[in-house]
Design a protein around this nucleic acid. Structure first.
Length: 777
DNA sequence: TCTGAAGTTCTCAGTGCCAA
DNA sequence: TTGGCACTGAGAACTTCAGA
């Protein structure tokens, strides 16, 4: 069906007219012209159409630009599907073609010939629309066709009007789904010197466009943006029948199969109801990976009896993922619609009712007949869930049914209980277009951004100490396996829950009367391996991190590790109690080793906010840059009072020393796992002679922890270390060592140093800090 | 000194262009 | 049609700060 202006909804006509008026008024008040602060060049006008997906942004934009006489419109977005859909809709015979003037010329940028470019740029009258994905122009150099030099100029330069054959008409840039834009894209688009940017989005403005808005403060810019935005209230869109009116959010704290089964049951219900209208609903299963998609296909076909010919698997690299998939599933029946290059928009018309898709669903696709969505994977990004909801709100034929169930969308997912309320709140925020958007201005934060480097006076290398669990990893596997039993089936189970909350889209309020909680027999499950490794990794990343563990790759194949247990089950409680034993036993195998092939080179010192100008005296002192004679760097700042005094004393010794920054400085691994910290960064390094390095920590915080104290003081025991590394804790007050070598404060007088002496520890007291440093030999 | 916000870096999967 | 390449955003992990 082709839409003409008379068929547009009142809110669509109003929005299009407001946008046109804004563009016609500029650069007269209240829309002031902006100029680049450095070059003085005029900046393009920025205006925006803010409306929810499904409100008909394309017809509103088409209707508005049809009023712009004699111009070129570059219509862009970051997804190819949006561009092809828009081209089809705007071109002759398309859904929105009647909204444009009859003589309009529409091009796909990728298909434009040199002759087309010449014609478009040489024309002085008429409306030309060029459609392009971001990928067609957003790349450095001249790799892309549009940037290639053709004789004297490139097509891009022609469009910018910068060269021979440059355009003769005004240029407007329409950016659909503008929140996906990046700084690089907008910089390139700014090079085209457009008269205006027209951004269409339901979300917030990209921060990088802040400079196009008048005003100096975020508040000024926010006010300007509000003035330059045409807002379409979601409620009006819903009331006009374009959107579904109720949104069921169902949090399934249950197994994946149960959650999928709940979603599929809802799809069957809707299928029954739509039979009277001779229509089929669609259920969309959104997954994070191709492998997960195949597992969903397996469940749908084998457990829920869905006909494989109705399932479109729209995922990349299916063939590769099949190599590792369940060998018993009938994969020959799988239909790979991605490989077949089918357009997602066409899938329902081809009879597919179940779509398995990935994150690319986020933009560019909204199927009115998609009533049910299942979001796979626990603890997904909450914002992600809310953003996807927008793709399912469009009402079929823009006409409400008598049965309210057919005017609703249903979402099934699994998030932790405490996050469910956030999902509901985020969704309401996404649905709302009201409110005052805060525009961040780069560099305006209260944090002083300025910093500079103090280079090293000479190159100084230090020996590296690495962490090791030893050569024999089998010992580590044995520790793990000996602490994990084979559980009885009952011990692996715990009951689950399905909670439903419903949002009334017209009022953007939760309908409390429809809230419900139901118990389920089973709960989400996790393998013993994933659970134990997750817990151990949280205790110390040296045991397990994302890219690997200290164990062999075989251990996870053990049947004890492959057991699936449910959240809150007795098995989980038992494993929880075993974690500390595993850590203790792993600790016995952990050691430090000298790395003869590697050195650490002292880096330049980063002076943060040097000589910060502020009324706060403490801050002024902290950021004051102090120069030193014997330090490896010319100057330092960022020290507290005690550190400043210690630095002065070190500099008085006529021996090399340096300030050692946390995290990026010289780190000494802590030979004890599970202590909450894995590397010790002393505040100062001091060479009392060429063979002895003192790692001095004036804070003494590590003294609190017995294990770290003992192990740290043992650092010099690393075999073959070419430099003797001694660790000294320097503290204010008189300390002595008590039971188990625990430092105890005797009086507030003087200063103490605690260090390793022969096989034990020693605490020594001095009247002055200078004497203490002199005695470090 | 602790905490948490904000920024940075890396990895991963998806996307689109181009040349063979 | 396929493979290589570059770009993209999201998330995780890590780093860098400011303020309490």
């Amino acid at each position: 069906m082709q839409l003409n202006k008379d068929q547009l909804k009142p809110f669509q006509l109003r929005a299009a007219a407001d946008l046109t008026e804004m563009l016609a008024t500029y650069p007269a008040a209240p829309f002031k012209k902006q100029f680049n602060q450095d070059t003085g060049e005029p900046l393009p006008f920025l205006c925006r159409l803010k409306a929810i997906t499904g409100s008909g942004k394309t017809p509103m934009l088409a209707s508005s630009i049809s009023q712009l006489s004699d111009c070129i419109v570059l219509w862009t977005t970051n997804r190819g599907a949006v561009i092809s859909q828009t081209k089809a809709n705007l071109s002759s015979g398309g859904k929105y073609s009647k909204l444009l003037p009859e003589e309009v010329n529409i091009y796909n940028l990728s298909e434009m010939t040199s002759l087309d470019w010449e014609e478009v740029c040489n024309a002085k009258t008429g409306l030309t629309i060029i459609l392009s994905t971001v990928a067609l122009f957003n790349r450095d150099g001249d790799v892309l066709n549009v940037h290639k030099n053709r004789g004297e100029t490139s097509h891009w330069e022609m469009l910018a009007g910068d060269s021979v054959n440059g355009r003769l008409r005004d240029l407007y840039i329409v950016y659909d789904e503008a929140h996906g834009g990046t700084k690089a894209q907008f910089n390139r688009l700014k090079d085209l010197h457009p008269r205006a940017f027209i951004l269409a989005s339901a979300s917030e403005l990209p921060e990088d466009l802040g400079e196009l808005l008048p005003g100096r403060t975020p508040d000024d810019k926010s006010a300007a943006l509000n003035l330059q935005t045409v807002v379409v209230p979601t409620q009006e869109v819903a009331e006009a029948g374009l959107l579904k009116t109720r949104l069921f959010l169902v949090d399934c704290n249950t197994t994946r199969l149960d959650a999928l089964s709940e979603a599929n049951k809802k799809w069957l219900e809707i299928t029954d109801k739509l039979k009277a209208f001779n229509e089929q609903p669609v259920i969309c299963c959104i997954v994070n990976s191709t492998t997960a998609g195949l597992e969903i296909w397996d469940y749908l076909t084998q457990n829920l009896s869905v006909n494989p010919s109705r399932i479109a698997v729209h995922l990349s690299n299916v063939d590769k993922a099949l190599l590792e998939a369940n060998p018993n599933a009938p994969w020959s029946q799988l239909i790979d619609t991605y490989k077949a290059k089918k357009s997602p928009e066409a899938l329902r018309n081809e009879g597919y009712t179940h779509l398995i898709w990935n994150l690319s669903l986020r933009e560019g696709w909204d199927e009115p007949w998609a009533y049910v969505a299942y979001l796979d994977g626990e603890a997904k990004s909450l914002t992600d869930i809310s953003q996807k909801i927008g793709r399912f709100l469009r009402q079929p034929n823009a006409l409400p049914f008598d049965d309210s169930d057919l005017n609703s969308a249903y979402f099934y997912f699994n998030v932790p209980d405490e996050d469910f309320a956030t999902v509901v709140r985020n969704t309401q925020n996404e649905l709302s277009n009201e409110g005052y958007e805060i525009i961040a201005i780069k560099g305006s934060s209260t944090r002083p951004k300025l910093s500079r480097e103090a280079p090293t006076k000479s190159i100084v290398n230090l020996p590296k100490v690495s962490e090791s669990f030893g050569e024999d990893l089998q010992v580590l596997d044995d520790i793990l396996l000996s602490n994990i039993p084979l559980f009885a089936e009952d011990n692996l189970k715990a009951s689950g829950r399905v909670s439903t909350r419903v949002i009334d889209i017209r009022r953007n309020k939760e309908d409390g009367s429809l809230r419900k909680d139901e118990k389920r027999k089973d709960n989400a499950e996790i393998s013993v391996w994933e659970y134990v490794i997750g817990r151990l990794g949280a205790i110390d990343s040296r045991i397990a991190r994302k890219n690997g563990t200290c164990f062999t790759s075989f251990v996870k194949e053990d049947k004890r590790m492959k057991q699936k247990m449910q959240a809150g089950s007795p098995a989980m409680t038992i494993l929880n109690n075993s974690i500390s034993t595993i850590v203790k036993q792993l600790n016995n195998e952990f050691r430090l080793e000298f790395e003869p092939d590697q050195v650490f080179t002292i880096k330049p010192f980063n002076l943060i906010s040097p000589d910060l100008f502020t009324d706060d005296e403490n801050k002024r002192e902290r950021y004051k840059v102090r120069t030193y004679n014997n330090a490896l760097h010319e100057s330092y700042n960022g020290m507290n009072n005690f550190e400043i005094r210690l630095a002065d004393c070190l500099d008085n010794q006529d021996l090399p020393w340096c300030r050692n920054p946390s995290k990026v400085g010289y780190g000494i691994p802590i030979a004890q796992i599970g202590e909450g910290t894995s590397t010790f960064y002393p505040d100062f390094l001091y060479w009392s002679n060429p063979k002895t390095l003192w790692a001095i920590d004036p804070k003494g915080t590590h003294l609190i922890n017995d294990a770290i104290r003992t192990k740290l003081l043992g650092i010099s025991d690393v075999h073959d270390l070419p430099l003797k590394v001694k660790i000294a804790f320097v503290v204010e007050g008189e300390y002595e060592l008590g039971i188990d070598n625990r430092p105890q404060l005797r009086s507030q007088n003087g200063y103490s140093v605690i260090f390793k002496y022969n096989t034990g520890l020693k605490a020594k007291n001095y009247q002055t800090l200078d004497n203490l440093v002199k005695d470090l030999k």
